[in-house]
Amino acid sequence: MTTPPPGIDPDHARTRLQEWTVVDVRTPGEYAAGHLPGAHNVPLGSLRRALPALRAVDGGLLLVCASGNRAEQARADLAEHGVQASVLAGGTRGWTERGHGLHRPERGRSRSPWAMERQVRLAAGAAVLAGLGLGLVHPAWRLLPAGVAGGLVFSALTDTCGMAALLARLPHNRPHATDLDAILARLGSARG
């Protein structure tokens, strides 16, 4: 079993995917929309709860998200707790851009969940429109779109997203406790 290097390119990851335990730190909705083959879904907000299972993994950990940002945050958090992991460069976007397929489980007739980026765009756009519309009633409501604009600038400068952190707490973006328990049990018994 080999430990993957700190950041790995999708082509290299594809050739050695069976050697590592892949942990997708996106929301359950994003994960269900498509993930790397064999990936386990442990959302970023559940990472601390997963520490014992992640420590028990034999072999290397490869962290994945949509672009690599959340996976890098997860890698830093895990490193603070003595767990070494690597990040898939470019995330699932980079993976698919290289022509590698994602696993999309059959979900029957359920609607496809939205990616976090899409949820953020909807929430930001809706807040701006609401603020502009309500600003016609009372000028103080114009502060809402100004706040959203300020948040977007801050998000770009810091490469963080407070709105995504809030949206991740919505029920459709959180795993059910039983789902997470099953994932952690599988992780605890995973052998790179």
Results as ranks from 00 to 15, higher is better:
residue 62 L to W: 04
residue 93 R to M: 09
residue 53 A to D: 11
residue 51 L to R: 12
residue 93 R to S: 03
residue 72 E to H: 00
residue 78 L to F: 13
residue 56 A to V: 04
residue 56 A to F: 11
residue 71 A to G: 00
residue 87 V to P: 00
residue 58 D to F: 03
residue 88 L to C: 04
residue 66 A to G: 13
residue 68 G to S: 09
residue 52 P to V: 06
residue 110 S to C: 01
residue 83 V to R: 01
residue 60 G to Y: 11
residue 58 D to T: 14
residue 80 E to T: 15
residue 69 N to R: 15
residue 55 R to D: 04
residue 93 R to I: 07
residue 101 G to Q: 15
residue 75 R to T: 02
residue 106 E to H: 10
residue 97 E to S: 12
residue 82 G to F: 10
residue 67 S to Q: 11
residue 66 A to W: 10
residue 82 G to V: 04
residue 70 R to F: 00
residue 104 R to F: 05
residue 71 A to R: 02
residue 93 R to F: 02
residue 67 S to A: 11
residue 72 E to C: 00
residue 74 A to M: 00
residue 54 L to Y: 04
residue 59 G to M: 11
residue 77 D to P: 00
residue 111 R to K: 12
residue 108 G to A: 10
residue 90 G to Q: 07
residue 60 G to N: 06
residue 92 T to L: 03
residue 52 P to H: 09
residue 99 G to D: 06
residue 104 R to N: 01
residue 80 E to K: 13
residue 56 A to D: 14
residue 85 A to K: 05
residue 60 G to F: 07
residue 78 L to Q: 10
residue 61 L to A: 06
residue 102 L to I: 08
residue 98 R to T: 02
residue 85 A to M: 06
residue 73 Q to V: 08
residue 80 E to N: 11
residue 96 T to N: 05
residue 80 E to Y: 07
residue 71 A to Q: 02
residue 62 L to H: 05
residue 76 A to P: 02
residue 55 R to S: 12
residue 66 A to H: 14
residue 69 N to P: 00
residue 107 R to S: 13
residue 90 G to M: 14
residue 66 A to S: 13
residue 80 E to A: 15
residue 100 H to I: 09
residue 69 N to E: 15
residue 91 G to F: 04
residue 87 V to R: 10
residue 81 H to G: 01
residue 97 E to Q: 15
residue 51 L to D: 04
residue 73 Q to L: 02
residue 71 A to L: 05
residue 96 T to M: 06
residue 63 L to K: 08
residue 108 G to F: 13
residue 111 R to S: 11
residue 105 P to A: 14
residue 50 A to D: 02
residue 88 L to M: 05
residue 76 A to L: 13
residue 108 G to M: 10
residue 94 G to E: 07
residue 98 R to I: 00
residue 95 W to N: 03
residue 79 A to G: 04
residue 108 G to Y: 12
residue 97 E to H: 07
residue 63 L to I: 11
residue 52 P to A: 06
residue 111 R to L: 14
residue 89 A to G: 01
residue 84 Q to D: 10
residue 55 R to V: 08
residue 79 A to V: 12
residue 61 L to G: 01
